[in-house]
């Protein structure tokens, strides 16, 4: 299997605050990798550097293929309220001819089970459905890599399970390479083929674990599987060890502000 994403000695500092300190890992084609770490450990910065939203201070990110897509946590803001659901899915496809755009959007909406909602406005849908629109939009773009930033952190538990299974299904059906950033240990074990465990700030790689579970997973049986439980405890222990370092709240807030203003100026 070839590598889809290669990250080498990636580091980023805001002023004198080091958010990530030298990360090296790869994501193979068709793989689903979860990055898990304590809150505020630099996961967002990692995602922003990989997606090219900010230029890393050092290191290299190389992606095989030209484009990637991101599904953000905040679906309400990530979707455009003035476009219909279909318009939102077509949003990244403006360079394609109209007819092809149509077909691709309809197809992607079918994949996530929203074929009937194409003409609605995103805000007329429930939160879980809105996040499915965002997933459809990302899939319609046919990305070499699908990045997801805490994608299911803003929906209720029931919807969350549904969306996790939806993600597992579509990525299997379409052989999508996915990198999910999350702080939820259970989710990382349930979704991942592999788990990258990060320590607190600055984010460093603590462990790179294969998930010894079958590709077919189920919310009830998988979560009670011995392998699942064992791996979950292992990740939890790793995070505790790595997370002992206390977080400098002030520095972190300052860094967060800076990272926001940085994006605004790069894309305008």
């Amino acid at each position: 299997m070839s590598n889809m994403l290669e990250v080498a000695d990636l580091g980023h500092t805001y002023g004198d605050y080091e958010a990530i300190g030298g990360l090296t890992f790869t994501v193979r084609a068709g793989e689903l990798v979860c990055v898990v770490g304590p809150s505020g450990c630099g996961k967002s910065t990692l995602l922003r550097t990989i997606s090219g939203l900010i230029e890393p201070s050092r290191g290299d990110v190389s992606l095989k293929g030209s484009h990637l897509a991101v599904v953000f946590q905040d679906y309400q803001r990530s979707l455009f309220p003035w476009l219909t659901v279909q318009g939102n899915v077509e949003f990244p496809l403006r360079s394609l001819p109209r007819a092809e755009r149509r077909v691709r959007a309809a197809e992607a909406l079918e994949w996530v089970g929203l074929g009937a909602a194409a003409k609605k406005r995103p805000w007329q849908l429930s939160g879980g459905m809105q996040q499915r629109v965002a997933i459809a939009r990302a899939l319609a773009y046919r990305p070499a890599l699908l990045l997801m930033d805490e994608p299911f952190a803003s929906v209720d538990a029931q919807t969350r399970f549904e969306l996790e299974d939806l993600l597992l299904r579509v990525r299997r059906e379409h052989d999508t390479t996915v990198l999910v950033v999350t702080h939820d240990i259970d989710e990382s074990v349930y979704l991942g083929d592999r788990i990258l465990v990060l320590s607190g700030s600055p984010a460093k790689l603590v462990a790179d674990l294969e998930v010894p579970l079958p590709a077919e997973r189920d919310q009830v049986t998988t979560r009670t599987d011995e392998a699942f439980v064992a791996l979950r405890s292992k990740v939890a222990r790793l995070l505790n060890v790595g997370g002992k370092q206390t977080l400098d709240v002030e520095k972190w807030a300052a860094a967060e502000r800076e990272s926001l203003s940085e994006t605004v100026s790069t894309s305008s």
Binding site: R48, S51, G52, L53, H67, L68, A69, V70, F72, R77, S78, F80, F91, P92, Y141, T263, V264, T266, S267, S268
Partner: peptide, 8 residues
């Protein structure tokens, strides 16, 4: 929205 537009 800025990020979404930049990513795509």
């Amino acid at each position: 929205k800025v990020d979404t537009s930049a990513v795509f």
